[in-house]
Design a binder for these strands. Structure first.
Length: 809
RNA sequence: GCGGAUGUGGCGGAAUUGGCAGACGCACUAGACUUAGGAUCUAGCGGAGCAAUCCAUGGGGGUUCAAGUCCCUUCAUCCGCACCA
C-alpha cells in the first residue's frame, strides 16, 4: 500500500476533478450571445444516449473538437461548443417495452450516465445550453416547424408503398432500409401500402446540390451527397397508347436512341395497369405478377444479377412517336415505381437490362448506334447513328441528344427534363417514442393542423408501448388522447397517431444551441445572425448522406421562408475515423474487444486518454486501439510533469531551444486547426525530449509548453502551471504567437548527393552563397572519393535543401 | 458496374512546392540504477553485409540531376451508390 503512494508521482484523478470544478465555477466555457469578439461555432454530432454508455470513438471526436475549441478561445474567439442529446428513437422504446417503464425514464437515466462520462473527460462544452430532443420545450418547436412545412404545402399525406419491416412492425425510410434489410433488426424489408406523411424533399434536390458550393465539406462527404441526390439530365417522352386516348410518359437519358425502342416496360405498380384492366386481356396474369413483386423483399427485387421476369400487357400497344411503330408494353419489376415516371422505353440494342429482357422474351432488337455486335450483347458505347431517321450519320452523342430533344420539343412529344434519385422524405413512424405529428383529422374538414398556440402536443403516459397488430402507433389505442375536437369546426375529431422520425429533432438542433432558452421562438433572429453557420461540424461517415441531407433540407426550407438568415447550416463538415478493437475489428460486445473509456480514465487519467486518442493516427481514418499506445502517452505526460523540477526563473526562452519553441508553436497551431492532431502531439513530444536534455528551463519555456499541450491535456497542464507559479490559469491565457524568423535555423545540415545518392552531409549557414556551399560539398572526403576520375556534368544546389553533383564516367 | 479512398519497418504512423524515407510513439534487445520493477535513465532497432556499400514506400514501366510524392499501367483492400432508365 505504502509503496503505491510513494511511487505515484501525482494523483491525476484529484487533479482532474479539481480543474473540472474550477472551470465550472468560473463559467470558463460559457459562450456569450452578446459578445463583440468574433464568433466561432464548433459542433459535434450530439449522441444518442444509449444504455451502453460512452464509446472510445465518442472520446476521439469530442476531444479533437474540444482541443480546437480551447485553442480558438485562447486566440480570442467567442466559441460556441455545445452538447445535447438526440434522445427519441427505437432503443429507448424497446427498452420501455421490455421493462414497462416510460421511455422518458430510461432516457433520463442514460443521459445522466453519458453526461457524467463526458464530464470526466474535461471537455469544454457549454453545459448551460444543454437540451434533449425529447424535452417538451424543444419538440414543441420541432412540431412548430412541421406545421410550417404543412402550411407551405411541403408536408402532405399520401398512400405510399413504404418499406415495411414485418418484425419491428414499422415503416422505414429508404435510408433505413438500405440493402433491403431493416437497419434496426436486420429482417428483410417488404413493401406495404400505407398512408404516410411526407415532406417534399425532392423539390429541393437542385437547391441541395447547388448549396454544396457554399460549403467546405471534405470530398468524400460531398461526393456522398452528390451521389445520393443522383441528378441525371435527359428527356421526358410521351408515347401514345394505340387505340386509347392516352399517353405513357417515360424518362430517358438517351433520347438519341429513340429509333431503337422496340418495347416499353412499366413498373408493376404503374397506374396504367389498373386503369386499363378491361383492355388488358391477361389481366389476371398481370395481377398475379404484381402481387408476387410486392411480396418480394427489396433484396430480391433489386438483385441486378437475377434473371429478368415480366409479363406482357396483352392488348395494350404504344406508338413510337418518332417512327410510328407499334410496340408492345410489358410490366417488370426491374422498372422502379419511384424513379422517373415508373415506365421506360426499352432500347435493347444499347441497354444491358433491356437487352437481357428482350433476349429472354424474344423481342425485336434494332441497332441504332454502330460499333458493337447486337446479336451478342447490348452495345453501350458511342458511334455513328443508323436506322435513326433525322439522326442518321451523326457521330457525337451530345449532338444526337440535343437534336432529338429539339425535335421532341418542336413536335410537342417530349421535353428536356432533369430527374433526381432523391425521394420525398417519408416522415411518419408508427411508433410511440417520437414527436407526435401535430395534425388532427376531422370528418368534416379533413386534415387540420393543431393551432400553433396549442403546441406542444405531448406524449401521454401509457402502459403499453407495443405497436398495435395492424402496425399503428401505440398511441392509437389511447382513446382519451386520440379523441379531440376539430380546431376548425369544433366537432369531434381524431389526432394523428404517427410520430416523427428520429431525423426530425436532429435536423435543427444546431439552431437551438444558439438560443436554447427561448420560449417565444425556436431561436431569435439576432442569435442566429450572430452565430451564423456552424464553422466546424464533426460527425461519422454514417451520417454523411441522410442526417446531413435532412438537416440541410430542413434548414433550406426555413431559409426560403425567412425563418433563418442564411441558406446553408454547416460550413465545414469533417468525418472522423472509427476506433477499432486491438484486433483491428469493429468493437462489439460479441467480439469482446470493447474498451470502456471509464476504465481508461480511472487507470491512466483523462489527459492520457485524450492525448492517446489524438495521437492514435490520422483523424479521418480508422485506427486500432492499443493499450500500450495509451501507456506511452501516459509516460509522455509523466515526463512533462517531471520537467517541473528543472524550472528556474526567467522571462525569455532558453537560447538553445528558442527556435524549436517557435517551430513547435507554429506546428501545433497549424496542426490543430487542420485536424492533424497526431503530429501536433508528436511535435510536443519532441519539444519535451529537448527540454529533458537541458539542465534548466525557464518559466517561460515551461509555460509555453504547458499552454501548447493544454488543449490536448487540459488538467495536468493547469496543475503544473499552478505548482510552478507560472501566472494566471491557462484557460485565461492567450495562445502563444511565433515569429516566422525564429522558425528558420541559421545553421543547417544538408545532404550532398552524387548522382542522387547521399554521400555526405555538410553544415551550412544562411550567409553562405552557392560558391561556398559548392566548395564545401566538393571538399567532403566521401564526395571526393566518388567524383575522382569522373567528369562533373553539373552541380545542383537547392537552397537549404540539398546539393546534387551529377557526374559522368 | 459507377464513384470515393487507401496501400510506407514487427505495429500505430511521419515526410511544404518532387529534395537525406521511416519523425514521434509502441513493441523488442542490451546495459545502468535497484531488495524489487508493469518505475526511471542510457544505447540500439527496415533488410543484407565485417565494412565500403547495396536493396527497400503493393507490382511493372516512365518523366527528372533527384520520385513515397508527378505520369501511364497493374494488383489488393476498405467504403459509398447500384436493375436510377
Amino acid at each position: 500500500m505504502l509503496r503505491k503512494v510513494v511511487l505515484k508521482m501525482y494523483n491525476f484523478s484529484e487533479i482532474e476533478k479539481k480543474w473540472q470544478e474550477y472551470w465550472e465555477k468560473h463559467n470558463s466555457f460559457v459562450a456569450s450571445n452578446t459578445s463583440d469578439k468574433q464568433k466561432y461555432y464548433i459542433l459535434v454530432e450530439f449522441p444518442y444516449p444509449s444504455g451502453a454508455g460512452l464509446h472510445v470513438g465518442h472520446v476521439r471526436s469530442y476531444t479533437a473538437l474540444d482541443a480546437m475549441s480551447r485553442v480558438k478561445r485562447m486566440q480570442g474567439y467567442n466559441v460556441l461548443f455545445p452538447m445535447g442529446w438526440d434522445a427519441f428513437g427505437l432503443p429507448a422504446e424497446q427498452y420501455a417495452i421490455k421493462n414497462k417503464v416510460h421511455p422518458k425514464e430510461a432516457v433520463k437515466r442514460n443521459i445522466e450516465v453519458f453526461k457524467k462520462q463526458i464530464q470526466n473527460l474535461g471537455l469544454s462544452f457549454d453545459w448551460t445550453r444543454e437540451f434533449a430532443t425529447t424535452d417538451e420545450d424543444y419538440y414543441k418547436w420541432t412540431q412548430w416547424q412541421f406545421l410550417k412545412f404543412y402550411e407551405k404545402g411541403m408536408a402532405y399525406k399520401d398512400k405510399k408503398q413504404i418499406n415495411w419491416c414485418p418484425n419491428c412492425k414499422i415503416g422505414l425510410s429508404n435510408e433505413e432500409a438500405e440493402g433491403g434489410v431493416c437497419e434496426r433488426c436486420g429482417h428483410s424489408v417488404v413493401k406495404k401500402e400505407k398512408e404516410q406523411w411526407l415532406l417534399r424533399m425532392s423539390d429541393y434536390a437542385e437547391k441541395l446540390l447547388a448549396g454544396l458550393d457554399d460549403t467546405e465539406f471534405v470530398d468524400r462527404v460531398k461526393t456522398a451527397q452528390i451521389n445520393w441526390i443522383g441528378k441525371s439530365v435527359g428527356a421526358e417522352v410521351d408515347f401514345k397508347l394505340s387505340d386509347l386516348d392516352d399517353t405513357l410518359k417515360v424518362f430517358t437519358t438517351r433520347p438519341d436512341t429513340l429509333y431503337g425502342v422496340t418495347f416499353m416496360v412499366v413498373s408493376p405498380e404503374h397506374k396504367v395497369i389498373d386503369k386499363y384492366k378491361d383492355e388488358i386481356k391477361n389481366y389476371n396474369e398481370v395481377l398475379k405478377y404484381k402481387e408476387e413483386a410486392s411480396k418480394k423483399s427489396e433484396i430480391e427485387r433489386t438483385d441486378a444479377t437475377k434473371e429478368k421476369t415480366g409479363v406482357k400487357l396483352k392488348g395494350i400497344y404504344a406508338i413510337n412517336p418518332v417512327n410510328g411503330e407499334k410496340i408492345e408494353v410489358w410490366t417488370s419489376d426491374y422498372v422502379l415505381t419511384n424513379y422517373g415516371t415508373g415506365a421506360i422505353m426499352a432500347v435493347p440494342a444499347h441497354d444491358e437490362r433491356d437487352y437481357a429482357f428482350a433476349k429472354k422474351f424474344g423481342i425485336n432488337i434494332i441497332e441504332v448506334i454502330k460499333g458493337g455486335d447486337v446479336s451478342k450483347e447490348a452495345y453501350i458505347g458511342d458511334g455513328e447513328m443508323v436506322n435513326s431517321g433525322i439522326l442518321n450519320g451523326l457521330t457525337n452523342k451530345k449532338d444526337s441528344i440535343d437534336k432529338m430533344i429539339k425535335y421532341l420539343e418542336e413536335n410537342k412529344i417530349g421535353k428536356k427534363t432533369t430527374n433526381y434519385r432523391l425521394q420525398d422524405w417519408i416522415f411518419s413512424r408508427q411508433r410511440f417514442w417520437g414527436e407526435p405529428i401535430p395534425m388532427i383529422y376531422c370528418n368534416e374538414c379533413g386534415w387540420v393542423p393543431v393551432p400553433y398556440e396549442d403546441l406542444p402536443v405531448t406524449l401521454p403516459e401509457v402502459t403499453s408501448y407495443e405497436p398495435t397488430d395492424n402496425g399503428e402507433s401505440p398511441l392509437a389505442n389511447i382513446t382519451e388522447w386520440v379523441n379531440t375536437k376539430c380546431p376548425h369546426c369544433g366537432k369531434a375529431a381524431k389526432r394523428e397517431t404517427d410520430t416523427m422520425p428520429n431525423w426530425a429533432g436532429s435536423s435543427w438542433y444546431y439552431l437551438r444551441y444558439m438560443d436554447p432558452k427561448n420560449d417565444k421562438e425556436f431561436a431569435s433572429m439576432d442569435a442566429m445572425k450572430y452565430w451564423g453557420m456552424v464553422d466546424y461540424y464533426n460527425g461519422g461517415m454514417e451520417h454523411a448522406t441522410r442526417h446531413l441531407l435532412y438537416a440541410r433540407f430542413w434548414h433550406r426550407f426555413l431559409y426560403d421562408n425567412g425563418l433563418v438568415p442564411f441558406p446553408e447550416p454547416f460550413k465545414k463538415r469533417v468525418a472522423h475515423g472509427m476506433i477499432l478493437g486491438e484486433n483491428g475489428e469493429k468493437m462489439s460486445k460479441s467480439k469482446g474487444n470493447v474498451v470502456n473509456p471509464d476504465d481508461m480514465v480511472k487507470q491512466y487519467g483523462a489527459d492520457a486518454l485524450r492525448t492517446y486518442e489524438l495521437f492514435i493516427g490520422d483523424y479521418e481514418k480508422d485506427a486500432s486501439w492499443s493499450e500500450n499506445g495509451l501507456k506511452g502517452c501516459k509516460r509522455f505526460l509523466d515526463r512533462v510533469y517531471r520537467l517541473k523540477d528543472k524550472v528556474v526563473e526567467g522571462f525569455m526562452y532558453s537560447k538553445e531551444i528558442e527556435n524549436l519553441i517557435h517551430k513547435t508553436i507554429k506546428k501545433v497551431t497549424n496542426d490543430i486547426e487542420t485536424m492533424k492532431y497526431n503530429t501536433a502531439v508528436s511535435s510536443l513530444m519532441i519539444l519535451t525530449n529537448e527540454f529533458e536534455k537541458l539542465e534548466t528551463i525557464t518559466k517561460t519555456d515551461y509555460k509555453t509548453l504547458l499552454i501548447l499541450l493544454n488543449p490536448i491535456a487540459p488538467h495536468i497542464t493547469e496543475e503544473l502551471n499552478e505548482i510552478c507559479s507560472l501566472g494566471r490559469p491557462i484557460v485565461e491565457c492567450r495562445w502563444p504567437e511565433y515569429l516566422e524568423s525564429k522558425t528558420i535555423d541559421n545553421e543547417k545540415e544538408i545532404a550532398v548527393q552524387v548522382n542522387g545518392k547521399v554521400r555526405a552531409t555538410i553544415k551550412i549557414d544562411s550567409s553562405m552563397d552557392e560558391e561556398e556551399i559548392k566548395k564545401l560539398a566538393l571538399n567532403e572526403e566521401n564526395v571526393i572519393r566518388h567524383t575522382k576520375d569522373k567528369s562533373i556534368v553539373k552541380i545542383i544546389i537547392i537552397k537549404d535543401k540539398i546539393v546534387n553533383i551529377v557526374i559522368k564516367d
